[in-house]
Amino acid sequence: MKTMYVIENTATGKYYRKLGVEAHQYTDIRYATPFSKWKKAKQKADILHAAISPIGEQINFEVKQHKFYVLKNRNDKGYMNQASYSAPKDKAIMFASEEDAKREAIDLATAMARVGVELSFKVEEL
């Protein structure tokens, strides 16, 4: 099991999501950008805090541990996207909740069955 971290904006209860080099947004936990190292998440949280402190905003950012899940196929490969059902697990799409991962596994299996392809995944916690 791999520990992952997210950054919470404590004023809004929303989570940091990286969109680009300098672009980001605050969103639901399902779309939060996970960090594999606490130190890296803490550094980013400190940068976010320093960027808004000069404008007088009293917003704090807290680094929190969070469980993420991936879908694995029978060959122990992860689901990456509609075109790749067998990516390395570290490239697989991560789901913020086990329920989201299970729902996606069912939806994928159902969609593929309609075109005659048998596909199944199991949910694994990172």
Rank of each mutant, 00 (worst) to 15 (best):
S120K: 08
M4S: 10
Q58V: 13
H49N: 13
G20K: 08
K42F: 13
D90A: 01
S97T: 15
I7V: 15
S86W: 06
A92R: 01
A11H: 09
R74S: 08
P34W: 06
I29S: 11
V63R: 01
I52K: 09
E104P: 05
F35A: 05
P54T: 01
N75F: 07
A92H: 01
N9A: 06
A50C: 15
Y85E: 11
I47E: 15
A105Y: 02
N81Q: 05
R114A: 15
F95L: 10
K14P: 00
A111C: 08
G56N: 10
I93A: 03
E118H: 12
M94D: 03
K44Y: 08
L108S: 02
L108M: 06
D90V: 03
A32R: 00
D100Q: 13
R114M: 14
R17L: 01
N9D: 15
G20Q: 14
W38Q: 14
L48A: 15
D76N: 07
K39M: 11
Y16T: 01
T3W: 02
Y15M: 00
K91I: 11
I29N: 04
A32H: 01
Y79V: 01
S97P: 11
H49C: 10
I47S: 12
N81R: 06
S84H: 11
T3L: 07
D76K: 05
K42Q: 14
V123C: 06
K122N: 15
T27C: 03
D107H: 09
E62C: 08
H24I: 05
N75R: 09
P34G: 06
D100C: 07
D107L: 10
E98A: 10
K37R: 12
T12K: 11
E124D: 13
N75S: 12
A11C: 11
D90I: 00
Y5P: 10
H49L: 06
F68C: 01
E62H: 06
A92V: 02
I47D: 14
T3Y: 03
F121A: 04
T27R: 00
M4L: 09
K18P: 01
R30W: 14
A87R: 06
D76R: 04
R103C: 02
N73Q: 11
A11R: 13
L71F: 03
S53T: 12
R30Y: 15
A41W: 02
D100Y: 01
M1I: 10
S97Q: 08
I106Q: 13
I52M: 12
K91L: 14
G56S: 11
K72C: 00
G116K: 04
D46P: 10
T33L: 05
K77D: 00
A96H: 01
K18N: 09
K89V: 13
T27S: 03
A87I: 11
R74Q: 06
Q65K: 10
M94V: 12
Q25S: 07
K37S: 15
